[in-house]
């Protein structure tokens, strides 16, 4: 699986992420809500994990096939990049 290309942000400094899925971007001042799986992915991106690791972890934790998890993961990345979060 190819790895993803993103602007790796400094999660520690630039984001406040709450366990409820609230995200505050200290650079842009914008706020977001993530659902449970979205939050799960974002945290792992913050931990600098690669795409296959993340997808693997999703399938381990949630009831979902690898194909579907992968497609959704890619779509999530596109969305987050568009918002300028990644």
């Amino acid at each position: 699986m190819e790895n993803y290309e993103i602007n790796q942000r400094n999660f520690e400094e630039e984001f406040t992420i709450s366990p409820n899925g609230f995200l505050f971007d200290h650079v842009s001042g914008l706020t977001y809500t993530l659902n449970k799986t979205g939050l799960f992915i974002l945290r792992r991106i913050g931990e600098k994990k690669n795409a296959s690791e993340i997808v693997m972890e999703i399938t381990e934790k949630f009831e979902v096939s690898q194909e579907r998890a992968n497609v959704d993961f890619q779509e999530f990345l596109v969305q987050a990049k568009e918002f300028g979060v990644l």
């Binding site: 977001y32 993530l34 659902n35 799986t37 974002l42 959704d72 999530f76």
Partner: peptide, 9 residues
């Protein structure tokens, strides 16, 4: 499992 989503406020 829910499809991962991020929504801007």
């Amino acid at each position: 499992y829910e499809k991962p989503i991020i929504v801007r406020h």
